[in-house]
Design a protein around this nucleic acid. Structure first.
Length: 826
RNA sequence: GCGGGCGUGGCGGAAUGGCAGACGCAGCAGACUCAAAAUCUGCCGACCUUAAAUCGUGCGGGUUCAAGUCCCGCCGCCCGCACCA
């Protein structure tokens, strides 16, 4: 029976019946937790990207299994989220129904892929068994002060009438309907990820992750070293006081404290609370008008660096702590309320933005830094080097020295200190959506915010809810859900109407897999301790600054709660590339360039499809789909089957390496080289080259068969080794050939992975390229252990040398052992 | 604007500073065949009738005995961040 989808079905059935992939945590072998990012069941079918991710990571873990690791390889579904809800709005099919149906289909397809998942460990985040612990985690974070509520501006899509996550805003537009997103203030739940900003940065260097991904996280966290300095404020001729009656300190963050004596005005973000406090009655009308104007500006406008800067005077003045100068305080939306203190000191002479603003509004510009002493640079001069002028006692100082001196002086006055700021903001996790985990909090008029007691978890997501978007949380309109009793006082109270960002669900799922049926705890600490962290995590690079950051944060928070005993959830990370349509563009239904894996799998079988995905692309790069490549794999598989056929007619004779002919030795060399390089390539996720090595092995076996000097034991040994090497990519075929064709015992996946013999890789003679001035001239054969003198002698006496030298004289002779020699001639 | 990555035959793609183009696809030629398919064998960067020579990893410089690989300056494409003070 030659390979087809029928072979797939046959072995899938057998694997299931015999429980081949059942995971036993107590089995021998070093533990290895191999995990793909779980899938989102938005469509009914697995798409090509799923196949590319899952089938090849499965190949990797199959090799690891055969190498003796006790591999934990679970699968599940990230089942909450907006697409299912939108689908429901469009079709009237309830998200729960469509999601469960999609999950069932995808499970079936994943089984048809022939992957090693142990389905006993499956999770789906939309089940109460899972989201109960999502709620439990929320409450723990709340108790730890890591979950809190505040009023903040959010992304609002006027078309979809809902807030959007940051990642759902692409270039200021809603990723689904393409309408411009506006800002809106709402009271929301946040997770305090900023508390871990420094540690999230510090742990990055030790992670075996792509450098690019680490860089994205580094930039996203955005550590900035500077100083926080303070001004007092004069409003209506009076020094402004704070709530406790002391002089109000208007604090600003700056990385350029050296330019402090050049401050000619101060800018406050119009939406910050300070702005109203600073505005005088005289200026209030203009400032309020300006606030309205800027709040109308879309994020697209606001983000544009080319937009002309606007602003309005607040009427108040900041008093410079070192020279006593009174400088005006302006409100302008080029200052970001959420970064630093939301207030900025403006130095037009040494900052492009301030220069533009000062020029427009006729504000003073004072030079305080020169690139070289006495040089009048063109303003604004923004280089971070130079010497101070017009700065009183600091004149002549080098700028870095000046920063220390200025901040030092301010510090003695209680008006400044060194400070580190981060770009990272706290994680907004509230969503005004239906299809998510309900936030387990109760709002009581008497008692305030009260967490749902653990015994009352989970807070179930009701089924019958009107979830058409109208701007209000769907759960708020569900009376049976929203009305409840306060757990503290027993009076009437209301539940929080929002659900959690689905990134919360996926920020700890890797731990739940390990103990997915636990009804008493989020997971058993010892079980997680035994299997986690994840040793190899594979998924798309698009999660670099989202899921991969959130998960790291939650892991650290859990560690500080005593739930886990390690710092990082994913020790080693690989990103697969993206498979493009045949036209080289991203696949999309609107372009009509999508490739449906099912059709190919039905036609060619899972193994052909898997092996093609392995061979046709550099794994981390991806690339355009090309149908022709599949035919190449069909041919390749046919050749393997033919060889198995040939080997099957040979009785099992023990293979003896002691008595080998020249032909045997040549094949043995190729065989061992293949084992060595194919294994190393699979290990590094370089599947394309590992398959190439196997193709070379097939070519070598073909030549061997034609040599007329075939040692049966050698041939069978070579073919069996080939089948073992190929088995991770073509598991069904390998099982068929191994068990049925060659009559070996079930299962091929219980065999040991081939180990290469170093001795077989040692050759007697070495082929050595000889270069003249770096260009290949000819090749010589020398004994492997030849030293430089012997090689040089061989080259000098070679009859081809005079012609290659063409009259030039040998100046120098270079021999790189075992690799190359180069004759320098003139 | 800032940061990162990439650029190699007709195509997918290989190359720890050491023989550029592994492996495969497509193409060409041959064997088998009445014929075709399948299979097998050989050729397959450019220039050139052939050989030899020469040129050749986006462009221009440099380091080195030796550069696709390292350094500097450009061009093009992709990705991330974007008034972060």
């Amino acid at each position: 029976m030659s390979y087809s989808v029928d072979i797939d079905r046959k072995w899938q059935k057998k694997w299931e019946e015999t429980g081949l992939y059942k995971f036993d945590p107590d089995k021998d072998g070093e533990k290895l937790y191999c995990l793909e990012m779980f899938s989102y069941p938005s469509g009914a079918n697995l798409h090509l990207g799923h196949w590319y991710n899952y089938s090849l990571t499965d190949s990797w873990s199959r090799m690891k299994r055969m190498q003796g690791y006790n591999v934990f390889h679970p699968m599940g579904f990230d089942a909450f989220g907006l697409p299912a809800e939108n689908y429901a709005i469009k079709t009237g099919i309830h998200p729960q129904d469509s999601t469960m149906k999609n999950i069932a289909t995808m499970e079936k397809q994943l089984k048809e892929m022939g992957a090693t998942f142990d389905w006993d460990y499956e999770i789906a985040t939309c089940t109460p068994e899972y989201y109960k612990w999502n709620q439990w985690l929320f409450i723990k974070l709340y108790e730890k002060g890591l979950a809190y509520r505040k009023n903040a501006p959010v992304n609002w899509c006027p078309q979809c009438k809902t807030v959007l996550a940051n990642e759902q805003v692409v270039d200021g537009k809603c990723e689904r309907c393409d309408s411009e997103v506006v800002r809106k203030n709402m009271t929301q739940w946040f997770f305090k990820i900023t508390e871990y900003a420094q540690e999230l940065l510090d742990c990055l260097p030790d992670l075996d992750w792509p450098e690019k991904t680490k860089k994205i996280q580094t930039n996203w966290i955005g550590r900035s070293e500077g100083s926080q300095v303070a001004f007092t404020v004069e409003k209506d001729g009076q020094i402004l006081k704070d709530d406790s009656g002391n002089d109000l300190k208007l604090e600003v963050f700056t990385t350029r404290a050296d330019t402090f004596m050049g401050v000619t005005y101060v800018v406050v973000a119009p939406e910050s609370e300070l702005c109203s406090k600073l505005t005088t009655d005289e200026c209030r009308e203009a400032v309020e008008e300006y606030k309205v104007m800027t709040s109308k500006a879309s994020d697209i406008d606001r983000m544009s660096t080319t937009r002309e800067k606007t602003g309005v005077f607040t009427g108040s003045y900041a008093i410079h702590p070192l020279n006593g100068r009174k400088v005006p305080i302006w409100a302008a939306d080029y200052v970001i309320a959420a970064y630093g203190t939301g207030v900025v000191m403006a130095v037009p002479s040494h900052d492009e933005r301030d220069f533009e603003f000062a020029t427009k509004y006729g504000l003073d510009i004072i030079r305080v830094v020169q690139s070289e002493k006495g040089v009048e640079d063109e303003l604004p001069y923004c280089e971070k080097k130079g010497y101070l002028v017009n700065s009183g006692e600091f004149d002549g100082m080098e700028m870095h020295e000046a920063i220390d001196a200025i901040v030092g002086k301010l510090n003695t006055m209680g008006m400044g200190e060194k400070k580190v700021n981060y770009r990272l903001r706290d994680w907004l996790i509230s969503r005004q959506r239906y299809w998510g985990t309900p936030i387990p909090m109760i709002h009581c008029e008497k008692c305030g915010i009260v967490p749902v007691p653990e015994k009352d978890l989970p807070v179930l997501l009701p089924y019958d809810v009107e979830f058409n978007p109208d701007g209000e949380s769907p759960l708020a309109k569900c009376a049976s859900f929203i009305n409840c009793k306060c757990p503290k006082c027993g009076g009437d109270a209301k539940r929080d109407p929002d659900t959690m960002d689905t990134f919360v669900d996926s920020s700890w799922y890797e731990f739940r897999y390990v103990d997915n049926k636990n009804n008493d705890a989020i997971f058993d600490k010892d079980k997680v301790k035994k299997l986690c962290p994840v040793d190899k995590y594979v998924g798309g690079p698009e999660h670099a600054a989202m899921h991969l950051l959130y998960s790291r944060f939650i892991c650290k928070a859990m560690r500080d709660m005593g739930l886990v005993d390690f710092d990082e959830p994913f020790t080693s990370l690989v990103h697969q590339g993206i498979i493009l349509g045949p036209d080289g563009n991203r696949m999309s239904k609107s372009r009509g360039n999508t490739v449906a894996p099912d059709e190919y799998v039905m036609k060619y079988g899972s193994d052909v499809f898997r092996t093609y995905l392995a061979f046709g692309f550099a794994y981390t790069e991806g690339g355009p789909w090309n149908e022709d490549g599949l035919q190449a794999i069909v041919k390749f598989i046919r050749r393997v089957e033919k060889l198995a056929e040939d080997a099957a007619s040979i009785d099992k004779i023990p293979f003896d390496r002691a008595s080998l002919s020249k032909e045997d030795k040549d094949l043995d060399y190729v065989l061992n080289y293949t084992i060595k390089s194919a294994s190393a390539d699979i290990d590094r996720f370089q599947f394309n080259t590992s398959i190439a090595r196997m193709m070379e092995l097939i070519n070598a076996i073909g030549k061997y068969q034609q040599s007329g000097n075939v040692n049966d034991a050698m041939l069978r040994h070579a073919v069996e080794t080939l089948i073992l090497l190929l088995s991770p990519f073509a598991p069904h075929l390998a099982e068929e050939l191994w068990c049925e064709k060659l009559g070996n015992g079930y299962s091929v996946f219980d065999q040991k992975w081939p180990v290469f013999d170093e001795k077989a890789l040692v050759k007697d003679e070495l082929e050595l390229p000889v270069q003249i001035n770096g260009k290949l001239a000819f090749k010589i054969y020398v004994p492997v252990d030849s030293d430089q003198d012997a090689v040089e002698a061989a080259v000098r006496s070679d009859e081809r040398l005079p012609e290659a030298l063409a009259g030039r004289n040998i100046m120098k002779f270079i021999y790189v052992k075992g690799r190359i020699c180069n004759v320098v001639a003139k």
